[in-house]
């Protein structure tokens, strides 16, 4: 099966995601009283195995926040940041001076909230595109390597991943990570059709 997006589909997705990111960045900025910038420089499609490798495989420790989207379209939305960077980031946001060697409960909660804001923006973008009834779970925090994290509830190798590169900056501090939408093939086909329809509609208006 072909899992490539056309140039037009790709550009459309990047644009709508960036609109969502603008809202998330505004929310984060008021929260931490600093200017927060968020952007999605690229959207790619790939198989799950490949995505796990692109994200660093088993060699890289990451923090992840997952929300599950169910409805006509089903996907696990996973935000992934390098462990060390995300720690530094959340400590910057919390204004804590003590560098503990582990992620404390408060830091973990704060990271989860930040992830929740970003993921809601991404999920909102998708549900807006797809127009339908969805249920969305609360965010869940996990630490581990990328393969562990990408291992969803279903162990289906055929899963398709829409991988969004995400750049995040607070003060002079930059961190880049990824949002992965892990979906099964059926969902994926419906998804591409919806994007096409959205593009047609947009071009007519």
């Amino acid at each position: 099966m072909n899992i490539v997006l056309t140039e037009l589909q790709k550009e459309t997705l990047e644009e709508v995601f960036n609109i969502g990111m603008g809202r998330a960045a505004a929310a984060l900025s008021t929260l931490v009283n600093e200017e927060v910038k968020l952007s999605i420089p690229s959207v790619r499609l790939m198989r799950r195995k490949e995505a796990a490798l692109v994200l660093g495989g088993t060699s890289r420790r990451v923090c992840s926040i997952t929300q599950v989207l169910r409805g006509e379209f089903g996907a696990d939305a996973i935000l992934i940041f390098p462990e060390e960077k995300s720690l530094q980031l959340v400590r910057l946001m919390l204004g804590e001076s003590v560098d503990l060697t582990f992620v404390s409960e408060i830091e973990r909660e704060a990271l989860t909230e930040v992830g929740n804001i970003i993921l809601n923006a991404c999920i909102g973008t998708i549900t807006n595109l797809l127009e339908g009834e969805f249920s969305i779970s609360l965010p869940v925090f996990k630490q581990g390597d990328c393969v562990e994290i990408m291992q969803g509830a279903t162990d289906e190798q055929e899963q398709v991943v829409m991988l969004l590169h995400i750049d995040f900056s607070v003060e002079k501090y930059e961190i880049s990570g990824h949002v992965a939408f892990v979906q099964d093939v059926r969902s994926y086909q419906g998804f591409v059709e919806r994007i096409e329809r959205f593009i047609q509609k947009a071009m007519r208006s």
Partner: peptide
């Protein structure tokens, strides 16, 4: 949007 959210005391 039917989106759930968490709000932490610290943030």
């Amino acid at each position: 949007l039917h989106q759930p959210a968490i709000l932490t005391g610290s943030l």
